[in-house]
Simulated assay, not measured.
Amino acid sequence: MKHNALQLYDYHIWANCRFFERLKELPDNVYTKEIQSVFPSIAETLVHIYTTDSIYLGVLQENTMDEIQASIKQAQEKTKNKGLEEMEVLYAELAEMYKVFFNSQEDMDKPITPEHPAFGLLETHLSELVQHIVNHGTYHRGNLTAMIRQLGYPSVPTDYLIYLYDRQATN
């Protein structure tokens, strides 16, 4: 049976993919149009999710703070001025890196102690950080939904329950 954290991460990928599919259906200018919201555009929201997911892969891998800081700069360079389709490719590549990492883990509940520059050491478990990554993505997909609606278009439902129904229908 698949560990719950891995199923949650599969949901995260599924929900991101649904947003990319929806955004590709909308006029091209929707992606970069500036709006009054949490982020100034849909593009910038997607960059934020990608950058944060990149950071947390390093945290899960128990990289040093210097390595994590370098990954932030790499993510910023990779995403600079990228269009929707290019961002979709970056997301897919990052999801594959996560899957490679997860496949190398024997214990998704193993304890880890990441260190945050402002908050210090955190005693937690790998699976709890995966849940954090998924929660972070869910929060910002909510921002995306609001932004798409603010621009006058319907969004796409990405609730976890819909993922479960979708997964059941495809199995």
Rank of each mutant, 00 (worst) to 15 (best):
residue 39 F to D: 04
residue 48 H to N: 09
residue 100 V to A: 14
residue 139 Y to L: 06
residue 72 I to Y: 01
residue 54 S to H: 08
residue 80 K to L: 12
residue 167 R to V: 08
residue 38 V to R: 04
residue 94 L to Q: 03
residue 30 V to N: 02
residue 82 K to N: 10
residue 129 L to G: 05
residue 115 E to V: 12
residue 19 F to G: 00
residue 44 E to Q: 14
residue 105 Q to Y: 01
residue 40 P to W: 01
residue 108 M to W: 05
residue 4 N to M: 13
residue 26 L to M: 11
residue 32 T to W: 02
residue 39 F to E: 03
residue 43 A to V: 02
residue 31 Y to A: 07
residue 25 E to L: 14
residue 33 K to H: 14
residue 150 Q to K: 11
residue 75 A to W: 02
residue 25 E to V: 06
residue 120 G to M: 08
residue 19 F to C: 01
residue 117 P to W: 11
residue 144 L to G: 07
residue 21 E to Q: 15
residue 24 K to T: 08
residue 44 E to W: 07
residue 11 Y to Q: 06
residue 100 V to R: 14
residue 171 N to I: 12
residue 157 P to L: 13
residue 134 V to Q: 09
residue 61 Q to T: 00
residue 116 H to P: 08
residue 101 F to S: 10
residue 68 I to W: 02
residue 10 D to W: 02
residue 88 E to H: 10
residue 74 Q to V: 01
residue 116 H to F: 15
residue 78 K to Y: 06
residue 43 A to F: 00
residue 151 L to G: 05
residue 121 L to N: 05
residue 54 S to E: 11
residue 138 T to F: 12
residue 44 E to H: 12
residue 164 L to C: 07
residue 166 D to E: 10
residue 34 E to K: 15
residue 168 Q to P: 02
residue 58 G to W: 01
residue 43 A to L: 05
residue 94 L to K: 04
residue 167 R to P: 00
residue 139 Y to T: 03
residue 111 P to A: 09
residue 120 G to V: 04
residue 159 D to S: 11
residue 143 N to T: 01
residue 139 Y to E: 05
residue 162 I to S: 00
residue 30 V to C: 08
residue 51 T to E: 12
residue 119 F to K: 13
residue 131 Q to H: 12
residue 76 Q to Y: 02
residue 1 M to I: 10
residue 150 Q to A: 04
residue 95 A to Y: 08
residue 106 E to W: 01
residue 169 A to V: 15
residue 122 L to F: 15
residue 109 D to E: 04
residue 101 F to N: 11
residue 33 K to W: 08
residue 169 A to K: 15
residue 40 P to I: 05
residue 80 K to M: 09
residue 106 E to K: 14
residue 93 E to M: 09
residue 151 L to V: 07
residue 166 D to A: 15
residue 13 I to V: 15
residue 141 R to Q: 10
residue 31 Y to P: 06
residue 11 Y to V: 02
residue 166 D to N: 12
residue 38 V to W: 05
residue 75 A to E: 04
residue 144 L to R: 00
residue 93 E to K: 12
residue 156 V to D: 08
residue 49 I to G: 08
residue 20 F to C: 12
residue 32 T to V: 10
residue 82 K to I: 09
residue 49 I to A: 10
residue 2 K to Q: 14
residue 78 K to E: 14
residue 104 S to M: 06
residue 152 G to N: 09
residue 145 T to A: 10
residue 70 A to G: 04
residue 105 Q to D: 00
residue 28 D to L: 13
residue 142 G to I: 05
residue 128 E to C: 12
residue 29 N to G: 07
residue 109 D to I: 03
residue 113 T to Y: 00
residue 103 N to E: 13
